[in-house]
């Protein structure tokens, strides 16, 4: 903003850039932009469906964010040995993970809200906790738990405290291993903390349990 150039500002020459290129470019960018904003998830889903679904075996990583699971779809096979790493990547929110089917609901002014899954996937499953860092609490319900780390004070054993679910503090992670039980079909996983809002805001996923290979 130092000097004054106005004495040099005459519209002198018309040197033309291509109108067609400009319109095509702007139109193309507009289409891409609108697509990115409004059709992000259909496009992402289409790409995902192109990829063949593989069965998760061995070490499975599951990340938690605000408010999503990454990945939000898994596929396990009955009888496989799975080691699940669950990590809470959120900088400031706790997250948990339930697996189940059907919903328990509570009535509110805005209609019924899902408070959790009705059937617990982990009923009677043997699990072995290998790692636990910044765990707020871990409800075991009817799962049968052995632990390689000190389970105190966060492990809440025994039924009556809700479904099986580890609740992680921000930055926390847990690892546990188990054999996929013989409960084939489609199951759901989700997080219900903070007045059940996390599930409502999209923090959910699906697991397909395939029958054992013969």
């Amino acid at each position: 903003m130092s000097d004054d150039l106005e004495k040099n500002q005459q519209p002198l020459v018309e040197r033309e850039w291509s109108r067609r290129e400009f319109l095509l470019g702007a139109g193309g960018l507009a289409v891409v932009g609108v697509g990115a904003l409004f059709a992000k998830s259909p496009i992402a889903n289409a790409f995902q469906s192109l990829r063949p679904q593989t069965t998760d075996q061995g070490h499975v990583r599951l990340y938690q964010g605000d408010f999503y699971f990454d990945p939000n779809h898994m596929q396990w096979r009955v009888g496989d040995q799975v080691t699940l790493h669950l990590m809470n990547q959120s900088p400031n929110r706790p997250h948990e993970m339930w697996i189940g089917r059907g919903f328990d609901t509570t009535p509110t002014e805005f209609g019924p809200i899902a408070t959790g899954f009705h059937t617990d996937f982990w009923d009677g499953v043997h699990i072995n906790i290998l790692e636990a860092y910044h765990v707020s609490n871990w409800v075991t319900n009817n799962a049968i738990v052995t632990s390689q780390v000190s389970p105190h004070p966060w492990l809440v054993t025994g039924p009556g405290n809700g479904n099986f679910s580890p609740t992680l503090e921000p930055g926390g992670y847990v690892t546990w291993s188990f054999t996929v039980p013989n409960k084939p079909g489609r199951w759901m996983y989700g997080c219900f903390v903070q007045s059940y809002i996390h599930y409502d805001e999209g923090m959910r996923g699906t697991i397909d349990i395939l029958p054992a290979k013969v």
Partner: peptide
């Protein structure tokens, strides 16, 4: 009466509308 409710009036995140 719908006005007889405890309602959060300052936006406090995605759960704000349900904070009743």
């Amino acid at each position: 009466n719908g006005m007889m409710r405890v309602q959060c009036a300052e936006v406090c995140g995605p759960g704000h509308p349900y904070m009743e």
